[in-house]
């Protein structure tokens, strides 16, 4: 059997970098370091930068030319897809009074429906991850996430009923639902990746909840404008749930990130390292935490708030992430 030998051909390259940082544990494991920046090898970096600057562009111009090139496609004004119409109208092919408003409402209801359905899968994925790796200080507890999950499921069911109620087909992928799907692909990728940490997943969930909150606000305003009053109460309830979710996710994320933060000490020469150029104010300041404004009742709400508040005080060990570069390739 062939056994791989240690590669000694490039000791002046990446391996020298590994050697310089031997014993340092980065987020990806022992001896692993982030090589993506110019500081990985300042001499090489200076060389490639100089060469790029010395060479004239081909051709001359600037980034504005891309916009000009896109114009013929934009000028055709071809939409990504058609808005749905009420099923009776689809059957008869008749455009009736109010048709546009119904289509608009169905499109936005379809968007929220798709979003809530994807939200269910996102939370299921996060719950699976935390069940596998365990709850972490400052982070969400399984029962808290399962509570949110139940509410996302309930919103999905409500939206299906609402669409049927105004004569629509809840299985249609509307243009706005399609856009929501494209946007959430990145969120799914972040949460589903076994390499991402809980705070990294919470960043994705936070993005989802921020968009969801605005989505429900807009839907509420739209329903009021269109005079579909009977949906108003259910939308208000869902909106309050989502506000609650947002606050919970925010507090978990802040607690987990801040729980890992500690004041950056000066290096032995008494000078600030490169990593200290960033403001330390935010790192040393406890997160501002607002708990008010939720209508969600019962023990889960109270428990969530108090638990998150307690956990923000927990300080984890100093992270190895913001490490100032000492050396590069030789």
């Amino acid at each position: 059997m062939i056994m791989a030998k240690k590669n000694t051909n490039r000791m002046n390259g990446a391996e020298a970098y590994d050697t310089a940082f031997a014993g340092v544990t980065g987020e990806t494991g022992a001896g692993m370091m982030n090589r993506s920046g110019t500081s990985t090898s300042p001499e090489d970096a200076l060389d490639v930068i100089r060469e790029a600057q010395r060479t004239p562009p081909s051709p001359k111009g600037d980034a504005r030319q891309l916009a000009e090139y896109r114009k013929p496609y934009l000028e055709q004004r071809i939409p990504i897809g058609s808005r749905p119409v009420a099923i009776d109208q689809a059957r008869t092919g008749r455009a009736e009074e109010g048709n546009t408003s119904v289509s608009l409402l169905l499109d936005k209801l379809g968007e929220r429906l798709a979003f809530e359905r994807q939200g269910v899968r996102l939370y299921e994925s996060l719950i699976g991850k935390i069940k596998a790796i365990g709850e972490e200080p400052g982070g969400p507890a399984i029962d808290e996430l399962e509570h949110i999950l139940d509410e996302e499921r309930a919103h999905f069911r409500f939206l299906s009923e609402a669409i049927v109620g105004i004569g629509g087909d809840p299985t249609v992928q509307t243009p706005c639902a399609n856009i929501a799907g494209i946007l959430s692909q990145g969120l799914v990728q972040v949460v589903a990746d076994p390499r991402t940490t809980v705070p990294q997943c919470l960043e994705a969930i936070l993005n989802a909840e921020l968009a969801d909150n605005d989505g429900w606000n807009l839907l509420q305003a739209l329903v009021a404008t269109l005079g579909v009053g009977d949906l108003g109460d259910r939308i208000e309830e869902a909106k309050e749930h989502e506000q609650d979710h947002l606050e919970m996710v925010r507090s978990w994320q802040a607690a987990m990130v801040m729980g890992n933060a500690a004041p950056i000490k000066p290096n032995p020469e008494g000078k600030q390292g490169r990593s200290q150029r960033v403001s330390t104010k935010s790192a040393s300041k406890p997160p501002s935490r607002t708990v008010a404004g939720s209508s969600r009742s019962g023990p889960a709400k109270t428990g969530t708030r108090s638990k998150a508040k307690e956990q923000v005080e927990v300080k984890g060990k100093v992270a190895s992430r913001p490490l100032a570069r000492k050396t590069g390739r030789k």
């Binding site: 099923i87 689809a90 059957r91 359905r117 269910v120 499921r153 999905f156 069911r157 299906s160 049927v164 004569g167 087909d169 809840p170 299985t171």
Partner: peptide
């Protein structure tokens, strides 16, 4: 199931 397995199991009668 039409509308994913999270949807109600009975397909909407309104489907065309």
């Amino acid at each position: 199931n039409a509308g994913t397995e999270l949807a109600e199991k009975t397909p909407p009668a309104t489907l065309t």
